[in-house]
């Protein structure tokens, strides 16, 4: 393999029914920075059916080129088809870096492509950089339950690939009118040759829990004691229009379903605002939320670990503080609501 032949930073663009998934736009932001350092193009790889409207948006978010395969066979994600299509593109156009969102489909595809084109892949990264001197891609991630950070390099194989957790990178502010080049490609597979079929897709819209996408999360820990204490936290979440999260102990106590658990064995979340109420801050919890933009902890133990992870803390009794917060937020948010209508 001639490493020098590989040029350009690629981002796999995941879309659901024609809408680009958030992490893909974030990766364009991160990829833009990498491409600028290497002085190469940033390219999107877009697969699906009826997706021709999407490249315009990708250019605005920083892409220079978009490779598009628009084919009914690609309507829904399948390992088989996507791996083949992406593998062909890689062999033909030889990118040096290839990023995927660490979503179900992104991880599935990246793993399959890595074996298809025989290259290295680093999973679930949270930091990306370039060693310019060697032109190496430095992909870093927490390892061993968040006990340590490790940088993984792929020195002799190309492309250098990574999946990236959502909400860790930042999309750039879109630049209306920014354009680029669309490259149309074809897939040479017939449905009859395929071994897998998507029979049904069930998107659970009734279930509002989507911690990973939430902007505000109010999380309860064992400090809430029982259902009454837990309700306080839910009430606060309600006032803030936030999603309710929980520590494992709260989930195990049966106060709320597992879908709400934040942490190593629950969801990794990166909201703009994270309230940790009555949570001690065990490392298994903290690895799931320490990339939140602002973390606020309320705990009556001044030595609680959570204060190491938080940005702001109140040492106090949640049974006193939370009711006050509910009351005061109700008032304060009415005023903010007012800002919106008057502006």
């Amino acid at each position: 393999m001639k490493v020098e032949e590989y040029k350009g930073v690629w981002v796999f663009i995941e879309q659901i029914e024609g809408n680009v998934v958030g992490v893909s736009l974030e990766l364009l932001g991160a990829g833009r920075a990498l491409a600028d350092k290497l002085e190469v193009d940033l390219c999107g790889v877009l697969l699906g059916q009826n997706v021709k409207h999407i490249p315009k948006q990708l250019f605005e978010y920083g892409a220079d080129k978009v490779y598009v395969i628009d084919d009914p066979i690609l309507e829904n994600y399948r390992s088989e088809t996507y791996m083949k299509a992406v593998g062909d593109l890689v062999r033909k156009y030889k990118p040096e870096i290839f990023l995927y969102g660490a979503t179900s489909n992104g991880k599935d595809l990246a793993s399959a492509v890595a074996t298809e084109v025989m290259t290295g892949l680093t999973a679930d990264t949270t930091m990306l950089d370039i060693d310019l001197e060697n032109r190496f891609f430095e992909a870093s991630r927490p390892a061993f339950g968040g006990n340590i950070m490790a940088t993984i390099l792929c020195k002799k194989h190309r492309p250098q690939m990574a999946t990236v957790r959502s909400k860790v990178m930042k999309a750039i502010d879109p630049q209306p009118g920014r354009t680029g080049e669309v490259i149309q490609e074809k897939i040479k597979i017939k449905e009859d040759d395929l071994r897998t079929k998507v029979l049904q897709i069930v998107r659970d819209t009734s279930k509002k829990v989507n911690l990973a996408e939430a902007d505000i999360i109010v999380s309860a820990g064992k400090g809430v004691k029982d259902a009454n204490g837990f309700k306080l936290v839910c009430d606060l979440a309600d006032v803030l229009n936030a999603t309710v999260g929980a520590s494992r102990d709260v989930v195990e106590a049966g106060l709320i379903g597992h879908a709400h658990q934040v942490g190593q064995t629950g969801e990794t979340v990166t909201p703009k605002l994270y309230f940790a109420i009555g949570i001690s801050g065990a490392v298994q919890h903290v690895v799931g939320m320490n990339n939140s933009e602002t973390i606020i902890a309320i705990n009556n133990d001044p030595n609680a670990q959570i204060f190491n992870a938080a940005h702001y803390g109140i040492v106090g009794d949640l049974f006193e503080i939370v009711p006050l917060l509910i009351q005061e937020f109700k008032v304060a948010l009415k005023e903010v609501g007012g800002v919106k209508t008057h502006a």
Binding site: M118, G120, I152, L153, K156, N290, H311, Y312, I314
Partner: peptide, 19 residues
């Protein structure tokens, strides 16, 4: 193809600003 480069303990935040 992949090798582990450096390893380091995750940054400890300065700690919460207590209100």
């Amino acid at each position: 193809p992949t090798v582990v480069g450096k390893m380091w303990p995750p940054a400890k935040s300065a700690g919460a600003k207590l209100i």
